[in-house]
Design a binder for these strands. Sequence first.
RNA 1: GUGGUUAUAGCUCAGUUGGCAGAGCAUCGGAUUGUGGUUCCGAGUGUCGUGGGUUCGAGCCCCACUAUCCACCCCA
Length: 457
Amino acid sequence: MANKPSIPKGTRDFTPQEMARRNYIFDTIRSVFRLYGFQQIETPAMENLSTLMGKYGEEGDKLLFKILNSGDWKQGITGEQFLNSSIPQLTNKVSEKGLRYDLTVPFARFVVQNREKIQFPFKRYQIQPVWRADRPQRGRYREFYQCDVDVIGTDSLLSELELIQIVEEVYRRLGIRVCLHLNNRKILAGIAEVIGAPDKLTDITVAIDKLDKIGLDNVNQELREKGLSDKSIERLQPILAMSGSNEDKLRTIAEVLAASETGRKGVEETKSVLELCEQTGVALNIELDLTLARGLNYYTGAIFEVKALDVEMGSITGGGRYDNLTGIFGMPGVSGVGISFGADRIYDVLNQLDLYPQTSQEQTQVLFAHFGEAERAYCLKWAKQLREAGINTEVYPEICKIKKQMNYADQKQIPFVAIAGGDEMQNDTVMLKNMQTGEQEEVDTTTLIKNIRILRI
RNA sequence: GUGGUUAUAGCUCAGUUGGCAGAGCAUCGGAUUGUGGUUCCGAGUGUCGUGGGUUCGAGCCCCACUAUCCACCCCA
């Protein structure tokens, strides 16, 4: 009890059953990404803190996992410095590396560093874990996977279209009914402009993002606390209350934003994206949602968020366009757009809706059970043939009772057991038992392979 | 960072006013020596999170600590 092992808070082990399901998600997402010509990259789990710090706002810096310097990390720090330094100053002295917080900033770093090797527009995907020193709770982990797909080096709205098509196809394949919420940061900026509070853009977006959650009154309350005038709040109300079809909303917002150049541009972009979807027959449920803001400040154009229709869950996919992400690393003027699939939340959704396929490719198809050493050796020859035929095969390793071997197959849900005893050895056959129906039949090699191929689901 | 919850067998959890430490599941063995999943019988397992206090006596009451989960902030 005292030495009971454990893992850090907010991290998880994955059992073989869970991994089979997770791989199903990753494989589905990956194959759709490839279908659109995206190529995979990986970046290190740890980055230099100078790469990460200051990219996610003040809050983000606190949520970075920092790695203590190797060796004598306290070298050169006096007791006085230790006592008098602020935490950030001190951190800076003892730590120069941190675990990645997302995949987008390392990607920007990657693009800048490898720009000679990259063909632009660069279409990349990346499926790796990220770490946040957040306080864990339901659906929130300290280590979790992101599946990012980005196009960088073009401002063509075709990229937005492709990402929407990818969302449609991924969730069609997974069998999850979803709604894609669409908005544009330029529209939000335009709104801030015409209500006379352009400097309050971040506060406004953060507040109205919560409309769903806390309601209109609380949003207005929060805006007031952030220092917005009553008049500005008043002028915001029609926008918060807007309803109707996407076309209706666009028409209304275009009128409201007529005085703002940025706002007009945002409306124009959004209109184009929706038209492209129309032209190419996108069947995905898309809702223009002017309350969608998304926290990350580097977005400058379209922003997306995807929610599952049949289950209560936060967003399971999100992203948007950013015009100058690489600028902070010395490569200005490069526009990109990307989205991130939250694999861990998709996993939870599939679990709740029970949408996993019945069998997986990873499963063992046949277990060889045997009665002694000679029989086991006989099984090994058979197993080799089956594996050459591409059938996942195991031979029970120990000499023991058949009952125990059957139990092993049952627990692992192996669909077939091939039993070899003296009689079978003499006939050059095995007794093939179907564990689901309980039927069994004495068969030779070719029949065995044929049967398993036919019955494999 | 703020507020709350919980901590008892490998797992999930009961445990009465403070009076011998319990159940289900899982595991192992047997019923059944060439057949699993169903059934029946049997077995093992505890520093009751840690440290202190109250009491004749504490799993239960009090204090501290640690861990945990949930909610807020923020986020996928």
